[in-house]
Amino acid sequence: MTTVAAAPATTETRWRFFRRNAPYLIVYALILVIAVFGTLSSERFLTDRNLLNVFRQTAFLGTIALGQTLVILTGGIDLSVGSLVKLSVLVSAILMNGESSNMGVAIAATLGLGVLVGFIHGLLITRLNVPPFVVTLGSYSILYGIALTITTNPIGRAAPEMLRFYDLRIGPIYAPTIVFIILLVALSFVLRRTTFGRYIYAVGGNEQVARLSGIPVKRVKFGVYILCSLLASLTGLFWLSRMGIGDPVIGDGLELQTITAAILGGTSLFGGRGSLWGTLGGALLLSLTANVLVVLNVNQWIQQLIQGAIILTAVALYKQKSR
């Protein structure tokens, strides 16, 4: 006698499916609502040019949000990503100094900086048992301080190839968007199909059980913090290619935006639940909303207000569906 492999589609299992996936359904429904609203209110919204631009902006926020999601899935948080982006832009611009010949070294050094920062986070969190919130709050401030000690004015210059990267297209799609999509697909695969990915959910789901199951909890944490910082320094390089210069105003507020994207995408702040596709939805929703408001010439303070309202609406809806 073999048991049935698939669950019968009773109302209960259907309801359960809906409940489990409610955040994704809601975030993509909200995207649709905003898109329809944008289309109806302005002719400039539904154009190739505008949409491709929105996707490119999503790549900037989304790349770090991927790392942030991995960290949050383990039950942690990384408040330092904004400052790290800022410092990465400056370091890469200074080292590159407009010369193609410096580009390799500058990119390697910038990404190396990310790995180093993530490694230090891992060290403090796993060896000294300092809560991630405190560790990354500290490094947020330290990296911010270093960046503004280096300069308060734009500094350095991107190499010409670097500048071209921002506007480079493959088919109709901009290069940063493509890099982001590759990262999204690859990391999703890692989460779902590799030991490391399974361990991430396990650590966030219940650290005690994970430890008692013989999972190398510390190594998993090292992994996610290093990945998150690495993605932040990569985003610093994106910004350099966009600005062409090391501008110290870049990166402000990114930590909160990435956390927002993850939450909108249904990732639980307690860890163990969520997905990168949800985070994509969250990042898209944020950049789409910002775009519609810009297209409609709404001033940026009102933009902040509206974004806050969206976050509260979305999360209130999730809570409704998950009870």
Partner: peptide, 13 residues
């Protein structure tokens, strides 16, 4: 419930 299982993860995992 608190030491043996990940209650919110699939049986498979």
């Amino acid at each position: 419930k608190t030491q043996g299982l990940f209650m919110e993860l699939p049986i498979r995992n």
